[in-house]
């Protein structure tokens, strides 16, 4: 009977309306995950270009903006698809409200995507001189090849706030205490470095072993610190009653407990050891496996962290 299972000092809701369940679901997870890949490849790509000669990574100049372009468009597509009025997205540009991180993020992400598109066009036609020789766009891109190097520093700089603004949205979502931790900002940055290195590992087959070793190093560091931060947040995020109640439920084997630990093992622990191992002896297949695992695990971890605070009734 209910009364025997309820502490005498507690109260039981006996009549109420149906409340909303998970409001931001898998589309927002996919949105955040794709943005991590899109900005991460630029950040990690810049690191590689700083450390190595372009000859060591022959396709990086056009593949880096290509991956960023694809994943940024996935991010933008699912941002639109999650809106109940997708065509009204234009209101963000016509009637911007600058206290909202959603507005600031949308403007920055749009500018970032536009610049990445320019880099992609120049990088692609530079790398493929025989493609579309009579096309005006291709010729203009080849004629302005130096523009790539001029805008690249701005793109790298912009990648940082584009990566981080989701943490500000989560901080503004003041109903969800679990997201209010300042560590969310660093968690976003580690996610981008993790996803970026994983994305570039998948195209690094013909690169020099030294470049691949650097990618493995970034992956290892990012998975290690990201894992530590998740553990810290998972076990010690008891700053608020809401956060405590949410985590206590998940700790006790509630919904998303299994997904969280699968994500941690597949996406963080396994890739960390594979990446560290690869720094000693170059093994392309194992490193690519580690990259895939990291991408899958990152999605799962983000999914859990997005959904669990939404299970709590707010009123």
């Amino acid at each position: 009977m209910v009364e025997h299972g309820i502490h005498a000092t507690q109260a039981v809701v006996t009549l109420d309306v149906a409340l909303p369940g998970i409001i931001w679901g898998w589309m927002i997870t996919l949105n955040m995950w794709a943005k991590s890949v899109g900005t991460g490849v630029i950040l990690v790509g810049a690191f590689l270009l700083y450390r190595h000669k372009k000859d060591e990574m022959p396709n990086l100049r056009w593949m880096m903006p290509l991956i960023a372009f694809i994943f940024l468009n996935i991010f933008l597509l699912f941002t639109l698809a999650d809106l109940h009025h997708p065509y009204r997205m234009v209101n963000i540009f016509l009637h911007p409200h600058w206290t909202s991180a959603i507005t600031v993020g949308a403007w920055m992400a749009s500018l970032f995507t536009a610049l990445v598109t320019v880099m992609l066009v120049i990088g692609y036609f530079d790398a493929h001189p025989n493609v579309r020789k009579n096309c005006a766009l291709a010729n203009a891109a080849r004629a302005n090849s130096s523009l790539y190097e001029k805008i690249f520093p701005f793109v790298v700089f912009l990648a940082i706030p584009v990566t981080l603004y989701t943490a500000i949205i989560m901080a503004e979502s003041s109903a969800r205490e679990l997201w209010q931790a300042p560590s969310e900002v660093m968690q976003m940055m580690w996610a981008a470095l993790m996803a970026g290195s994983a994305g570039l590992i998948l195209i690094s087959g013909k690169w020099s072993p030294e470049a691949r070793r650097d990618l493995a190093l970034v992956l290892a560091i990012a998975t290690f610190f990201s894992f530590l931060m998740y553990m810290g947040e998972y076990f010690f995020s008891f700053k608020s009653a809401e956060g405590e109640a949410t985590l206590a439920y998940v700790h006790a084997g509630g919904a998303y407990n299994a997904e969280f630990w699968f994500g941690m093992v597949l996406g963080f622990i396994v890739p960390f050891f594979l990446a560290v191992g690869n720094m000693k002896s170059d093994n392309k297949t194992l490193l690519k496996f580690a990259a895939l695992m990291a991408l899958i695990g990152l999605y799962m971890a983000k999914d859990v962290w997005l959904k669990i605070p939404q299970m709590l009734s707010l009123s």
Partner: peptide
Amino acid sequence: SRCIGCAGCMMACPYGAIYMDPETNT
């Protein structure tokens, strides 16, 4: 008429006072 239906307000309101109208989707 201006709402884009992002549900950000539903995530921000600590009192769960906002809903997505099923007729207007705002």
